[in-house]
Simulated assay, not measured.
Amino acid sequence: MRVMPMPADANANGDIFGGWIMAQADLAGAVLPARIARGRIVTVAVNQFIFKQPVSVGDLLSFYAKVERIGRTSMTVHLEVYAERNPADPVVCKVTEANFTYVAIDREGQPREIER
């Protein structure tokens, strides 16, 4: 997933809110588990979230997800976020990495087994 933060996503110092980055990471991280589970999933844990560098308005953020573990009803996803800065002379750097746990659920919101 790629997204560019806008001025409304920035705090008083001009940096992008960490919560905004976390929300985008959760969206990007949920794509693979939803495909694997072939249905509804929910985020049950943010196991780790590390902000390595600040993100600025105009940075182009790229989110890369990898499924690390598939259990009976849950999956762990590792996500890395890179920022491409300075379009005239592009520089790419890792700004965030995180681990999320998602659980497959049924129509009633109860955990369901992930078919293999």
Rank of each mutant, 00 (worst) to 15 (best):
M1S: 14
R2Q: 15
R2T: 09
V3D: 00
P5E: 01
M6V: 10
P7K: 03
A8G: 03
D9N: 13
A10F: 04
A12P: 04
N13E: 14
G14A: 06
G14I: 08
F17L: 09
F17H: 14
G18M: 08
G19N: 01
W20C: 04
W20M: 08
I21E: 00
I21R: 00
I21D: 01
I21Q: 00
A23C: 02
Q24E: 08
A28R: 02
G29F: 12
G29S: 15
V31R: 04
V31D: 02
V31C: 04
R35L: 09
I36Y: 09
G39P: 09
R40K: 13
R40H: 13
R40E: 12
I41Y: 09
I41K: 09
I41V: 15
V42R: 10
T43G: 01
V44R: 10
V44H: 06
A45R: 03
V46L: 11
V46D: 05
N47L: 07
Q48K: 15
Q48S: 15
F49R: 04
I50K: 13
F51Y: 13
F51M: 11
K52C: 07
S56W: 11
V57M: 06
D59H: 02
L60A: 04
S62A: 09
S62P: 00
F63M: 06
A65K: 02
A65L: 05
A65Y: 04
K66G: 07
K66V: 13
V67L: 08
I70K: 15
G71L: 07
G71I: 06
R72A: 03
M75P: 07
T76L: 10
V77G: 12
H78K: 12
H78Q: 11
H78N: 10
E80P: 07
Y82F: 12
A83I: 02
A83T: 07
R85L: 07
N86E: 13
P87F: 01
P87V: 01
D89M: 11
D89F: 07
C93A: 15
K94D: 13
V95Y: 06
T96G: 05
N99A: 13
F100D: 06
T101N: 12
A104N: 07
A104T: 02
I105P: 08
I105V: 15
D106Y: 12
D106M: 12
R107P: 05
E108M: 11
P111K: 04
P111F: 01
E113Y: 06
I114Q: 00
I114V: 01
